[in-house]
Simulated assay, not measured.
Amino acid sequence: MTNNCAIATGAAFGILAIILGAFGAHALKKVLSAEKLASFEVGVRYQTYSALFLIVIGYNANFQLSIMQWAYYLVTIGAILFSFSIYLLSLAEYLKKNFKFLGPVTPLGGLLMILGWGCLLLSAI
């Protein structure tokens, strides 16, 4: 684990969040209900928060500390589980697919992100 890895992951999350946010605001606005679109936007928002988190720790953290490595992995995996499960759940009706099995994945992803932020807090204390 290196600082550059965290920065690159954060940048990739940021790029994808902007693309998906624009896609949601323009293309999906016409095909999703207001409720589904709002859920999709929550996924984009939390992916953006995770991108910023990863970039900040990439520039500032000492990855020789295992707690910062944990912070990186927890936030990265948590953001993927949280945001991408929301994206698929929001699009399920439009895609005519049953993604209900992803329902429990979303809070698990959220929990992992919380734990990642907690690692950052512990490293500061």
Rank of each mutant, 00 (worst) to 15 (best):
M1H: 11
L65K: 15
Q64R: 11
E93M: 00
F23C: 07
T76M: 14
E35D: 02
Y73C: 06
K100M: 10
L54V: 13
K29E: 07
N3V: 12
K29Q: 14
V42D: 03
F23A: 01
I57W: 14
A124K: 15
F82T: 14
G109T: 14
G118K: 03
K97V: 11
W117T: 02
L28T: 10
L120R: 00
V31G: 03
G58Q: 05
I57F: 10
A8T: 05
G43L: 02
A61P: 08
G24T: 08
K30P: 00
L102K: 04
Y59L: 10
I57N: 08
I67N: 12
L91F: 03
L115Y: 13
G110I: 12
Y46Q: 05
C119T: 13
K97L: 04
N3H: 12
N60T: 10
G24V: 04
T106R: 02
F99L: 03
I19R: 08
T2F: 01
L102A: 02
G24R: 00
L37D: 07
F23I: 00
L122C: 10
M113S: 06
F82V: 12
L122M: 12
L20R: 07
Y87S: 00
Y72D: 00
A8I: 08
S33N: 01
L52A: 15
A92W: 13
I7V: 11
I55G: 02
M113P: 09
S39T: 09
K100S: 15
I125R: 06
L91W: 07
Q64C: 12
